[in-house]
Design a protein around this nucleic acid. Structure first.
Lengths: 196, 196, 196, 196
DNA sequence: CATGAATGAGCTTTCATTCAT
DNA sequence: CATGAATGAAAGCTCATTCAT
């Protein structure tokens, strides 16, 4: 009578542990022991379910990306605004720990090729979807869509920059400012495009 | 005096070593030995001229900030465009290693309070100057200046985001795209402000 | 529990390793590697069971103090003589390594505040008990007890001095001389006190 | 026209530097740089005048021994009391830094064979002279001199113990207590010897 | 599956000593 | 003689990873 595998649950628990430890002490400070402590698990178990510490981080990145997608899908109303809000993690389903973690992940992407790959993929997917939304909006307003890519790039840059500033220089920008700021920015850029 | 002091030169050399090692292997990967190797100096010498590794990083941050200021001052033409260009390190005096380093510094600011302090100070100073330039531009065009702060915040976010993306997800945005993109963004935001 | 904890045993082993390494090479010479070698353990294990090297020393101090107390308690006969003998570690339960270690500890107390605290506490406790014994002896002999404190101080000084000399200038005093010498000294001082 | 050698003066200066640095930060804390700073000399000069750091310590030990001898010679009155007082560094020519240094030297003797040799020699010379004084006193009082050695050993132990306690557990014994205590101890021991 | 002890490589930092100037 | 930069060998400590139980 083998006991049923709880691997999936354990993996989630460990990823949670990394999230908590990372937000509290940074990625380097999130030692295996610290992750285990945060997850209320023995350190050895972390390596039973993940080969390396880096793999845990990759699992966390994937989870955060899924969460943003789910948040976007769940959000009603104007799609462009919903997209911006979902990425800036605002509204009733906000998760400040996820925001902090995403900043740290952007930093780790500088050092870990695997993280970089996931980060880049997430960014590419974001850009693709955003370009679709921007193009649709431009068409609605009877404007040319040839600059949709560049407009999207500007929006994504502002989103990522808002993350970076919020994490690295908290207080430099007013709290809760990011989403309205980026929304307005999107609106301005769209409106500046010439009519067809 | 028997032995003329070459401390200043050596400190610069070590800061250069950190820059090189950091761009190549990240801040953690830039061990004292690696810094020494990059600077062609014995590892012990790093600690002869700097008390801690963190101090070397602080010296590098200060140098990069000075470089941006010097670049802005040296640049002719429209001040707002010059400011954006200087910060995105474009043009004939570009330094791709500095760009990469600035991204890493933003990441280190998450973990090292002293780096955070410098980073925040640099950002605050950037915001202040930018707000001045934006307000001036708005006045020139006979527009209200009440949103100058928020416009500046958007521009700075886009600049920092461009850095982050360039470093963490190279190739996601077209090369050399950042400056024109942020310039256009600045123009759109200014133009969107209502006339006085 | 999968892996039964052997922490207590390991800690004792490490403390033993420090004792051995310290007696052989002094406290500074007792590097983590040397302690590990003496304990037949991997060096990393020392820091798994103790946060710092200083903590190992503190554990050793505590153990030595306990040993002296136990020796005194176990010893029969005249309490004052028993006390002196127990502190000078003579008799069948002698431990020459402990004698050497205690000297080194007195030296380390000069530099490490935590060691100093323990050393001082041990000394204070010794003085207190000794004063009690001396006063009792004085009363037995119908003498005034007002100088019991000063007599005790002299005895303790002689004990500590004997340690210091035995360790720092071995051979200066005849071996096995310390206890009789201090016993006689105690006797003389007591006898010199005036009758009530 | 060669400049006159100032080697002797420099050596004194360096020994002074070690004394100051040692009292302030212990022997290990007295790095060559620290010694140089205390002596207002460049670190390289220390090694010009002394081959090793240990040699500086040996010079200091020799100087302290000379000072005690000089103090004893200069002191009038009862020779035994003068001897005790001179060794406990009391009276108008007291030097608290020398007292502290002597304690540290006793500790260093545990680790450095050369220091141990000097320390032992100093102790032997002290014992020899003390035995002479004790024997003379016993004869004056018409007592047997056969225990003069053991009495002297007790006195020397008490002196060294007082040093050790003063340094390692300051406050455990009342200040200024050492000399009277040891004097009384000497008196008791002498008086306890049987008449011839 | 789970535990937590064990390993050893690698890190920053200190410092006696050397030596070019 | 004097300076202070330069060297390199330790040292203590951290930690991802392994593995006996």
């Amino acid at each position: 009578m083998a006991r049923p595998s709880n691997t999936l649950r354990r993996r989630e628990q460990i990823v949670d542990g990394l999230l908590a430890a990372m937000v509290a002490h940074g990625y380097d400070g999130a030692s295996i022991v610290a992750i285990g402590k945060a997850a209320k698990l023995a350190p050895g178990l972390v390596h039973y379910h993940f080969d390396t510490k880096a793999e845990v981080l990759l699992a966390l990145v994937e989870r955060l990306v899924q969460q943003v997608r789910a948040r976007y899908a769940a959000r009603a109303g104007d799609r462009l605004d919903a997209f911006i809000d979902a990425h800036l993690a605002l509204g009733s389903d906000a998760d400040p720990r996820a925001v902090a973690a995403w900043s740290i992940i952007g930093a780790e992407a500088l050092r870990q090729p695997d993280v970089r790959r996931l980060y880049r993929a997430a960014l590419a997917s974001t850009l693709r979807e955003l370009k679709r939304l921007v193009a649709a909006r431009l068409r609605e307003q009877g404007r040319l869509t040839r600059n949709a890519g560049s407009v999207s790039a500007a929006i994504v840059s502002a989103i990522e920059g808002a993350f970076r500033i919020a994490a690295a220089a908290p207080g430099s920008l007013p709290a809760g400012y990011a989403a309205p700021m980026v929304r307005r920015l999107a609106h301005s850029l769209v409106t500046a495009e010439p009519r067809a």
